[in-house]
Design a binder for these strands. Structure first.
Lengths: 242, 242
DNA sequence: TTCAGCCAAACTGTATTCAGTTCGATTGAC
DNA sequence: GTCAATCGAACTGAATACAGTTTGGCTGAA
């Protein structure tokens, strides 16, 4: 039963942010069920809860999600366009498979895209918000690296810092399409900011040193050098992952 | 009426390929309505039939498509994930706007991605099929350029040749994700292979000369040079578009 | 005249129902 | 014992019905 219906125990709809709290003058609206459903299924796929290549049964899934088939199908269609599931007419949805080569290719694509983001950020300048985020990330990384050895808490903090830094650069590039393209490369099991690359002290220091140099290059408008360095930086992640 | 319901006259479901014809041993299945609907709406948006920013009424649209709201909504959700329409809860779908800067950025993104495709193609080698397609495209381009002046037929042939050449390189890169990322940059009004860049004889010859050099570099495995040239090639398209 | 509040029409979100296809098991012939 | 045809259960595709939200206009008071 549980082997045939892995949909049965999905992650609870973790309230990403404490809703129902007024923010400014506006009350946060409740998300539609199809969005919530997509988020939960995406999470399940990214965490490897669904086996690659497995067929997704709409009835079982909608039962597990506690909604009808309509929003469930909407969610699956959205995930299909995101590239996480495949769709075939009259045969429904299957979990997309990502062979090792595809994961490695994703790093190449991400390197090209984030490299471009660096160049655009350097050309267009950093807004206060992004500059602050990058400087905060640099400080956080410095703090982590002061530890002789790195523990679990450091790992969590490091990931958050890393996401903040890369997101700030993407935001500074001011291109929604570029963000969407990068998201394509992150939305796969094994190629996420969240996922583990080497956490040896030396590797972490080298990567964080890249961040410092990237910040300098972007801040001083040296777009081409920033692009090249970011490419190298991301490719290095792939090397440390395999 | 027609101003409020631009959905009323949609392009007919142009049978992309003469269906119901056996191909090999298998009969081509009829496409589901949601796919057909998505194709028609995508075409309408790309050809500028829907005004950017306009709200899309599900009832009117499904009536124009001749199907119920269910497949219509599925199609719109898919287009939303493709980036052609925006979605807001309880407010439905709107046609996405692409300001000039977004179109120019798309060329930058495409340049980075197709450059990467060239490098991968050079590293991984050309299969017979792709090699044949590229050589055919080069011959077709040569034929067109023999004409002293270029007419409408030449323009049509040139576009087909151009698509064949670029698609062959993407296929040779052997990365589905890369294809999907490139598609993001093409699926926008004003930034399509199909769209017009300069058709002056000198510009066409220069672009076609790039193709010859790209083919040589890929065939001889000079990935880095191919990447750089392709980047320059695509950026040049942007320059000739504005 | 202007603006706040209210009301109804229109629209979107979801559930349910029905129709058509797929796929596996069973049966029978060879 | 093997393979093909057939039948039925299970599943997907689409339509319809219903519920909740938005939106624009109307009314009436300031």
């Amino acid at each position: 039963m549980s082997a045939q219906n892995p949909e049965q125990d999905l992650p609870e709809p973790r309230r990403a942010e404490p809703l129902d709290i007024e923010r400014g003058d506006e009350v946060e609206r409740t998300a539609p069920r199809s969005i919530s459903a997509a988020d939960r299924v995406r999470e399940s796929i990214l965490t490897g809860h669904f086996a690659p290549g497995a067929r997704i049964n709409e009835v079982h899934l909608s039962r597990a999600l506690g909604v009808s088939r309509t929003p469930t199908r909407a969610a699956l269609h959205a995930l299909a366009a995101e590239g996480l599931v495949d769709y075939a007419h009259n045969r429904g949805f299957t979990v997309r498979e990502f062979p090792l080569q595809a994961v490695l290719d994703a790093y190449q694509i991400r390197a090209a895209l984030e490299g471009l983001a660096c160049r655009l950020a350097a050309e267009r300048g950093l807004a206060d918000e992004q500059r602050a985020a990058m400087e905060q990330a640099l400080r956080d990384g410095d703090d982590i690296l002061r530890h002789e050895t790195l523990n679990e808490d450091d790992l969590v903090a490091y990931r958050a810092m890393n996401v903040m830094f890369h997101d700030a650069i993407l935001a500074a590039a001011q291109s929604r399409m570029l963000m969407e393209a990068v998201r394509l490369t992150l939305n796969m099991p094994g190629s996420t900011h969240r996922h583990i690359v080497s956490f040896k002290h030396d590797d972490v220091r080298r990567r964080h040193d890249d961040h410092h140099r990237l910040y300098q290059l972007i801040a001083t408008g040296e777009g081409w050098r920033a692009e090249v360095l970011m490419r190298e930086h991301v490719i290095g992640l792939a090397k440390q992952t395999v």
